[in-house]
Each structure stands twice: as structure tokens, then as C-alpha cells.
Design a binder for these strands. Structure first.
Lengths: 226, 226
DNA sequence: GTTTAGGGTTAGATGGGTCTAAATCGGTGT
DNA sequence: ACACCGATTTAGACCCATCTAACCCTAAAC
């Protein structure tokens, strides 16, 4: 099946929205994610439905079919492998890789994908801690980690994934010690969602507005310490 | 100026045709190179003319303007840097790099270009021996080497460039010792253009049909030997 | 100089991806 | 139950890159 770059982008966006929220993805959510208008999304969804890549219920949103999910996983694999490769071998900072990977993800061959995976020794996560789908494109488990907003004062957690894409936000997080692998002690969770934490990496505390904190996924420290 | 990938392809094709033959490039030559029909080429040439990238004389072909040439050089630089990178760092064979570079050349950022050039230490030629335009995009000298078909029995030459793109042809040439840097002793130039030569690299002789030989560019050995 | 073959251009259609404006659906609140 | 508001779809348009069919120009042959 011959898919355009744009179609792949829609499938990837739907996949990622299905990961964040659930089930049916609405037209407007896709429109926001891809920065197009909703009529544009509607007409694209019709095409994807014709090709059997999404299940659609008019006025109620879409879900990916198995076939659509496989395509999305392929694109996500390309994207995350590229991000990993760019940081490992071309000296990119994690804050910069997203945009470059977005440009390239649709234009690499299967051969290129395999060589990159090989050069990286089949990595399991990208520089943001996001899991890289395996070569067989089996749907991975996406339940790893919870948003840091779900924890409370005093909890100590390990950062698993920083799923933001904005270079400025990522640079800020890095300079304040919020990166995959670091320990975070939760100092405060404000009623409006802002999380303040202390990183094991830096001296100063960090405050993360809700929008940012939502993308920081963490797991509780195996054994707690006061 | 925002150019589409396709426009870049046209400019690159015109640039390369201007290198091979001369001056005005005809519609049909571009159509052959890009595998589209001639009306398609005509309409694209009109667009490129509107943007000041080509000079066009109806029914008589086009030439690149300075601006058009700069765009073409940028694309060619991307292409050849990618070819070099793929062979150096991702273990590609020289016969395979062209297709991959063609896919990627329009989709890398200036930053990526710079990082690749840096990783390769600003290379001057790609794996086929073709010169890589410098970062300032000044038009390079394209007179290096002459086609091997212009030599005669007994001449000894050094291969500078193998400008073919067909993987099968390139594999064949490599296994018969025809690659940039090797010495070739011309054994015969048949009236229909076929060149037979002996490579300094291999024992067996190679025969190159005219179409292939035309792409093998060589320079005479500094000091001749019988 | 006229003819003619071959290539170039014009005309008109198609499909992809996008938009704006207008119509319509569906859930919420009364 | 019903009206309303916000979200969705329909309708109609546009631009890009491409095609086929038909027409026309150029240059070479006579």
C-alpha cells in the first residue's frame, strides 16, 4: 500500500493521541496536533477509512485498525531511531532531535532503518525515554510510568520519559536536572497542577507548570527513602 | 524562497545536464532524466522561470540562473555529503548510496548538513569521485577528467569519477576493479564505443559498453609508461 | 522554399492536501 | 422534551504536480 507522508503523519498523530487519552480520537484533537483545520481532518479520515487504516464513526471520532497501527508504529520507530542516532552519532542535543527526526522519518528506507538500528545496537528507548517499537512492529506496552502530576509531596520517583517536543522546554528541563534516569523528590503539587521537585542532579528546585509536568512520566523509587 | 522538493529535483537535473552536455537544456532531456512527460516539464519550467531560477526561451530550452544554480548546488551538496556519510558511517556500499541519498537530500536541515560535513571532515568528493560543492555554494570547476572513451589503446589513466547511478552497474565495476583511484590500461576502443581495459586492481580485463564507459571519467597518468 | 518529422507547448482532466463558509449533528442544561 | 452551543461534516474553491490528447513550432531534408 502506497501512503503519502501526510497520511503517515495522521496515523502517527492518532496513535500518539490514543496513547495519551483513550479510545476514540476526535477530529479536533487531530486538527490541533497537526495544525490543520477540522474539515481537512475530516476529509483525510475518510481517505484513511477507505483504505482500512482507521475505523470511523461519523461525529464520534476514529480509532486505528491493526493495519493503521502497524503503519503508525513503523513511523514512530523511524522517528525514535533517528532521534537516538542523531544524539549518539551526530552530536545533537536531545532538545534538537525532534524536529530533524520529523523531517526525515518518512524518507528513510527499510535498509536505512536497519543500519541505524544496528549502529545503535537495537536501542529500546529514544533520548526522551520513549520506547522504540521493535522491528516486528508488535504493539508495545504503553503503560510504563505515570505522569509526575499523579504523585504527592514527599514521593521520590525516577524519571522514565520526558515526552515534550519543544526545544526550549527540553533545554530548560535539562539544565534543571530533569532527564530520563534522574531521581526526583516531589516537594509540592499545587492545586492548579504545578509540580515542584528537587532533582538528584542539581541543587536548585524546579517547578513544572501542569502542561510541562504532564509530559514528565515517572515511576516510584523501588525502595522509598524519607 | 520556498521551493518544493520537486522544483529542487528539476533544478538539480538541469544542473547535471548542463555539466554533461552544454548550454541550453531541452524539455525532453529533463523529461527523460526525471521520468515525467514533456508537458509536465514545460509547466514546471514556466514556474521556475516565474521565480527567476531558470532562463527560458520557448522551444529552445532553459539554462539555470545564478540563483537557480545555487539551489542546485545546495541539493547536490546534500546528495553527495549523504552518499559519503552513508558509506563512511553506515556501512553502505557505493552501489547503494545513490537511491538513499535521493530520498533524503531534500529533507535534511542546514544543521544536519553541517554536522554531517563535520563528521566527515569536509570531504571534497563523494564515493563515486564526484566533487562535493563547498558550503559557500560557489560553482565548482567541473572540467576534471575526461570520459574514458576519449582515450586510445595503450593509454594508461587514473579513474577520477564513476558517475553512474545504477547499483548493478556499480557492483559490476567494483568487482572488476573500476573505482576511483585505480589505474586503467586501455586495451581497445571499439568503433561502437565499447572500451576494454585492464585494471591495476584485478587480473581479468573489463569491457565497458559505451553507455557505461561514458560515465567513467579519468585523467592521464602523470608519467606515461608503454 | 516548401514539406515534414519530431519535439514543445497548450488545453483540459485528475488526485492530493489544504482552506473558508455554510449546514448539521449531538450532548447539556433547563 | 427541547433548545442551544460547540464540534463535525458538507460544499465549494485553490494550488501543486502530474497525465493524455491535440495543436504548433523548428530545423533539417529535399
Amino acid at each position: 500500500m502506497m501512503l503519502s507522508d501526510v497520511m503517515e503523519d495522521y496515523l502517527k498523530a492518532i496513535y500518539q493521541l490514543q496513547g495519551e487519552h483513550e479510545e476514540r480520537i476526535k477530529t479536533s484533537a487531530i486538527a490541533d496536533a497537526l495544525e490543520v483545520t477540522s474539515p481537512t481532518v475530516t476529509s483525510m479520515l475518510e481517505k484513511l477509512e477507505d483504505r482500512g487504516l482507521v475505523d470511523r464513526e461519523k461525529y464520534r471520532g476514529v480509532t486505528l485498525t491493526d493495519e493503521g497501527e502497524t503503519v503508525a508504529l513503523e513511523v514512530v520507530r523511524h522517528h525514535r531511531l533517528l532521534e537516538a542516532y542523531l544524539t549518539e552519532h551526530l552530536d545533537y542535543d536531545w532538545s534538537e532531535v525532534h524536529a530533524e527526526a520529523d523531517r526525515l522519518e518518512h524518507h528513510i528506507s527499510e535498509d536505512f532503518e536497519a543500519r541505524v538500528a544496528d549502529a545503535l545496537d537495537e536501542p529500546e528507548v529514544d533520548p526522551h525515554g520513549s520506547p522504540i517499537p521493535s522491528a516486528d512492529l508488535e504493539p508495545p506496552d504503553r503503560s510504563a510510568g505515570k505522569s509526575v502530576t499523579e504523585f504527592a509531596e514527599g514521593d521520590v520517583v525516577v524519571v522514565e520519559e520526558v515526552a515534550d517536543h519543544d526545544p526550549e522546554v527540553l533545554s530548560y528541563l535539562a539544565t534543571h536536572g530533569v532527564e530520563p534516569g534522574v531521581e526526583l523528590e516531589i516537594l509540592e503539587v499545587a492545586p492548579f497542577g504545578m509540580v515542584t521537585a528537587r532533582s538528584s542532579e542539581t541543587v536548585d528546585d524546579v517547578s513544572l507548570p501542569e502542561g510541562v509536568a504532564h509530559h514528565v512520566r515517572v515511576t516510584p523509587l523501588p525502595q522509598a527513602e524519607s
